[in-house]
Amino acid sequence: MYAQMVDTGSPSATSLDEREARFQSRIDDGIRVEPQDWMPDRYRKTLIRQISQHAHSEIVGQLPEGNWITRAPSLKRKAILLAKVQDEAGHGLYLYSAAETLGITRDQMVDDLHTGKAKYSSIFNYPTLTWADVGAIGWLVDGSAIMNQIPLCRCSYGPYARAMIRVCKEEAFHMRQGYDIMLALCAGTPEQKAMAQDALNRWWWPSLMMFGPPDGDSVHSAQSQAWKIKLFTNDELRQKMVDQTVPQAEHLGLVVPDPAVKWNAERGHYDYGDIDWEEFYNVVKGNGPCNRERLEVRNKAWTDGEWFRDALVAHADKQAQRLTAQAA
């Protein structure tokens, strides 16, 4: 889970020195960049930001869905949701590891998250009010994530691309489980169907916002595209998402909460209405319904767990000392 909202610094095509030119030409030739390779600082920094934002999104993303683990309506759904949320933690772990290959520690990244310096996908600042929200997150949010992440399996940075392959496989399963929840609700009682519609109403727009600002406002996209760490523009991906999702909503018998949604035969795509970007920027700035709560929960978990982490380190140190003493 992750939103395309990454600042690439200040790129300038003319400032490329020879090394950068060689670097760029390797990327153009489709050669993967590996941790030991030379890379421009801006590439490194941009990737650290992008991968760590992605990792943070996985970790914070555990919370809205974790909210329903204890209340899942059947044991089968509970088992699936537990496994799904555990997968997200696993994604966080691979991604932190991928980012560490760029020369930053996990502790530093976690600290950046907890102090609010680093961002995570703003979608997780919306609340999960009903069980249908768990379905909607799988269907729409993980659906958007896949759209964004499948191209990243081919991105220029090796560790990131490889992590994405496994992440995408799991996300595809997550999306199916979300849609399956929606199918069951839509085939259920009128109250269940209303629950599903309400969830779609609340998650539709935030899911479209996940792809980031419109291309015209996304000033750093060009550099990221040249570096092949972003392979499609925000609007291209958003359009794919709309095209994929509208027929799925129709199949469920649900109405997408946008009267402007209409098939455009000339474009070969669905048209859709204007996104409220003010809401998006407001949530990114920290003013979404759950921003404070999500960070509080993460901070509390971290602070409460300090004694535990300290103890493991202390024990490992003692063991090492004992081994040294034995050897002496």
Binding site: I59, Q62, G66, I69, L82, A89, Y96, A301, R309
Partner: peptide, 20 residues
């Protein structure tokens, strides 16, 4: 399951969920 997402370390979170 109540611990999910709130463990003292990421690895713990995953392990405890596995036990659950």
């Amino acid at each position: 399951g109540e611990w999910c997402g709130k463990g003292p370390a990421l690895e713990e979170d995953m392990a405890l969920t596995n036990v659950a």
